[in-house]
Amino acid sequence: MLENRLDQTFARLREEKKAAFVAYLAAGDPTLDATLGLVLALAGVGVDVIELGLPFSDPLADGIVNQLAAQRALESGTTTAGVIELIRRIREHSSIPLVLFTYLNPVYTYGFEKFHADAAAAGADGVLLLDLPPDEAAANSELTGTHGLRQIRLIAPTTPPARMRDIGSQGEGFIYYVSREGVTGEQSELATNIAENVAIIKSGSGVPVCVGFGISTPDQAAAVARSADGVVVGSAIVKTIAAHGSSPDLASLVADFVRPLVEATKSV
């Protein structure tokens, strides 16, 4: 049953009683070749899952750090086909679970089913579409044909408890709990109600719940790892990439930044 790398990883972590560390990268920032090196370096420091951002011109749920990364990725010539090819190249070296993270329009334009078929064939494990809520996924017959790729759903603090349980019960791969109202980006303080909402989501099913949006320090990662099945760090990594984009040591510099975050996550 557990043929999907995401499912295998979360099953293993459950046995080990450890939280997953999920890292977000904007594919193609600064280049797709650099992203390949970054993914392999992050896998090397114990990152469990990679969210690979497929850039979109109008990322309305993202803060400025990820917007600029998407812009750099598009300027470097990143295309949907190029990102799928990147997945194939990653698979020559690594079996780390890969989730494509993007908005609906690039996927819809590529062809919803063809995108999933090609991404699955290349070696992806899941897809997270920020502007495709489960209601629309269910109501549109053309948004079907996911070829085994786990459809990662979002839950927000504003999601009513009944809906939290509902989305949780239909969850695949993992649920991405957006820990605060707002766009992606670092925050100095964590939201206070994370544990409570993670418990509500999990009461609907056993699907793992990963928490993201605003986590940037080892202390924050450890705090989240106490109540969630996974910790997602995005903007803080993207910002580090932006700071060292042209360095020949980019991959190792970013790995050095991520290592303490992974260690903090695993310390709990």
Binding site: D135, L154, P160
Partner: peptide
């Protein structure tokens, strides 16, 4: 009831906005 005009329209938004 889904906010669709035939195949057009809908609610393609981040989950944070769904409740509002």
């Amino acid at each position: 009831s889904h906010g669709h005009f035939g195949q057009f329209g809908g609610m393609f938004v981040p989950e944070t906005l769904m409740a509002a």
